[in-house]
Design a protein around this nucleic acid. Structure first.
Lengths: 205, 205
DNA sequence: GTCTATATAACGATAGAC
DNA sequence: GTCTATCGTTATATAGAC
């Protein structure tokens, strides 16, 4: 009958906060317990150990980033629209959860195994439809010649890098938090324009 | 008279290896000692504690990435040449030291203070000459309208992101190490072309 | 400068009462 | 399910002989 969150969920949310802030090695079980406002031994009761708890947080993070990207790439829509959707999706996702991409990318470099099982379980594959779409556009001379994976790498780089390197960017550009958020917001328009010009995109009439 | 590296230097090199691989929290003083092939207490003799040793490694890393970028930005050369030099500089630097950018970017997000003292000591500032150069090119209609900081963000994103997200990229694109290196090599040409088209760069005759 | 031995503290994890 | 108390381990760091 309680309207409060279940203990297990409270623990998970706290773990998400602490792991994303400090990483696996930097995170402390005690800090997770304090953040969740529960007893430390409850962490072990529900999740057995630190590795387990971490992996749940990690998996949830990957799920928030990767499948949606692949789904957009697989959509039967114009390339221009597709690029716009990716930029918007990442902008909105990381506005809510700014530490997520740095967390996932860093932890994946630390331990590839963690991700491999995830890829296997969820059938994570770059959609062939996207590859075909880009190659077709190239042959039709609608865009200039660029390998589809390179194009995707460019799109994702432009979206993620500023957020992954937040402190570095703020420091070099002397941005406070407001300036930084405005900078990101400005990119919602700049990135699609930049990419479309970069591939010399020509509209289909 | 010894041709071997001094102990202090051996420690530093080992610390660089271990810190860049595992991060500050994940690094173990014992592993650094083992890597350097010296006794663990020597670490404290030369560097007093872990924080100190880490900060030396961190500072050296920042020095390898930031001042050179600012120096290129400040050069009195054509914008096209400038972009090409940045791309080449980062490609060559990270071919030798692939874990460096992820290390610096991650640790900077963990602890801004570490970097602030560095910025202060080294007078790290985005050169006004670069800002002026871009704005002048925009007014002369040589490139399309884009804030100079946004353009720089794009350049750096395209160079660094694939290396920072190495494992993620390899996984999603199903690249082995050779494929990945070829992918990066291919970008030496693709990135400058993409950027110049992206800003609709027009050569000065 | 370099070693062995050890102090000290923190962390993940568990046992057991309720 | 939830708590207190505590175990066992591992980490950084230091003391002191050589």
């Amino acid at each position: 009958m309680s309207v409060e969150k279940e203990t297990e969920e409270k623990i998970f949310e706290a773990a998400r906060t602490v792991f994303q802030k400090s990483g696996f090695e930097g995170a402390r079980m005690q800090e997770i317990a304090d953040t969740a406002n529960i007893n430390k031994s409850m962490l072990h009761y529900y999740y057995r150990n630190k590795d387990n708890l971490f992996f749940e947080v990690f998996k949830a993070g990957v799920k928030k980033i990767v499948p949606q990207l692949l789904a957009i790439l697989d959509k039967d829509i114009d390339l221009k629209t597709k690029i716009g959707e990716i930029v918007e999706f990442y902008y909105l996702t990381f506005k809510e959860d700014p530490q997520l991409p740095a967390f996932i990318i860093y932890e994946m470099n630390q331990n590839t195994t963690r991700f491999k099982s995830f890829v296997k379980d969820h059938g994570i594959v770059l959609p062939q439809s996207y590859i075909d779409q880009v190659n077709t556009a190239i042959q039709a001379k609608l865009i200039k010649n660029i390998p589809p994976k390179q194009l995707l790498m460019n799109i994702v780089s432009l979206c993620l890098m500023p957020i992954v390197a937040k402190n570095m960017v703020q420091m070099l550009f002397q941005f406070d938090d407001d300036n930084f958020q405005n900078f990101l917001n400005e990119r919602r328009q700049i990135i699609p324009e930049f990419i479309l010009a970069g591939i010399e995109y020509k509209e289909v009439k």
